[in-house]
Design a protein around this nucleic acid. Sequence first.
DNA 1: GTTATATATGAACATATGCTCATATAGTTC
DNA 2: GAACTATATGAGCATATGTTCATATATAAC
Lengths: 102, 102
Amino acid sequence: MNQHDHSFLSPNTVDEASRIFKALADPTRIKILYLLSQEECSVNHITEVLDMTQSAVSHQLSFLRNLRLVKYRREGNTFYYTYDDEHVITILNQVLSHIQCE
Amino acid sequence: MNQHDHSFLSPNTVDEASRIFKALADPTRIKILYLLSQEECSVNHITEVLDMTQSAVSHQLSFLRNLRLVKYRREGNTFYYTYDDEHVITILNQVLSHIQCE
DNA sequence: GTTATATATGAACATATGCTCATATAGTTC
DNA sequence: GAACTATATGAGCATATGTTCATATATAAC
C-alpha cells in the first residue's frame, strides 16, 4: 500500500482542527468556556469564580478572542463576555458529559 | 452573584477533558488518529504516509498508548495499531467534518 | 549465532505555553 | 482633572511539548 491509497486531510484542515483542540486543551480555558456556556460573564466575575489573577484570566480571554471563540460587549468599565462559537461549545459539552457518565 | 451560584465541574472532570483535548491538539496525532480511524496500520506504514521519522511516530504512538487511545497487536516484527477509544474518534471526526463543511 | 528488520526509548534541544509582575488604557465619579 | 475601577497588554520566567539523534530490544532469516 502506498501513500495514495488514503483519503487525506488537507494541511489547512489539520491545522484548523489542531487550533480548536488546542483552545480546549487547557484547564483554565475549559473552565472559562464552560462558565460562558451557562451565562454571560464579566471578566471580574470569571476572575472570582475561577480564583485566578485578573491578568491570567484576561490573557486567556485574549487567546479565546483571537480564535473567535468568545466575544464581548462593553458596559461602562465592565466587559461582558459570551461564547461566539456554538460548535466548539457543543464539542466541549459532549466531552464533558461523556467523562461524567463514566 | 457569588461562587456558589454555578454548576461546577469537578477538578477530575476538567483534567480528564483537558487530557483528551491535548491528545487531539497536535497535528501529528490528528493525522495518526485519522489514519487509524480508517484502517489498522503498522508503525512503518504510518511513518511512510506521514513522511516522518520512525522515532517521532513511535513517540507519538507511545503518547497515544498511555492515554489508551490506541492499542496494537504484534505479528512477527510488525506492530499493527488500531484506535481504542471510539468516543475520541467520534469527536475528531465531528470537528474535522465541521471544518470541511465551511 | 550473526545479520537484518521493525519498533521502542532515553537524552538533548528548540519552541510553545501559561502564569506573574508591572504598567497602560479607558471609562466613571467626584 | 484627579482618583478610582475594570480590563488589557508586554516582558520575563518556568514548565511542557515535539522533534532529532543515538541506542536498545526483540523477532526473523540465514
